[in-house]
């Protein structure tokens, strides 16, 4: 019996993980620093953009989606897409209602 785990599965090395760790630490410091700035309208947008960038790094590298099968990629994409439908359609409904009538 030859090496049973020597299938096509891609193994991500420690180098990539260390690089992602530092990217995540730096972007956390960045988002906290940005929250101290007076940017008005842009404060929440920057915070959510950095959070999304961090989440993307985690999904692609820590969770290995970048190196996974097409089925997994499609599954992840479908999940995010469905979530965006949930959030965007619900919010657009609430935001576009006549103010004060709820």
């Amino acid at each position: 019996m030859s090496e049973p785990n020597e299938h096509a599965h891609h193994i991500v090395g420690p180098g990539v993980y260390v690089a992602i760790l530092f990217a995540l630490l730096i972007s956390t410091a960045l988002t906290v620093w940005a929250s101290f700035l007076e940017l008005g309208f842009w404060n929440p947008i920057i915070a959510l953009a950095i959070a999304t960038a961090k989440a993307t790094l985690v999904v692609l590298f820590f969770m290995g989606v970048k190196y996974s099968t097409k089925l997994t990629k499609l599954t992840v994409f479908a999940g995010i897409f469905t979530f965006l439908i949930l959030i965007s359609m619900t919010l657009s409904d609430y935001i576009s209602r006549a103010w004060g009538s709820w």
């Binding site: 404060n43 929440p44 959510l48 950095i50 985690v58 999904v59």
Partner: peptide, 23 residues
């Protein structure tokens, strides 16, 4: 995968609960 997912949830909770209303 589960543990990283829980990490992602926290990344968003941190931004939404702690950061976006500071100013």
């Amino acid at each position: 995968l589960y543990w990283h997912f829980v990490d992602i949830v926290w990344i968003y909770l941190f931004a939404l609960l702690y950061l976006i209303s500071r100013h």
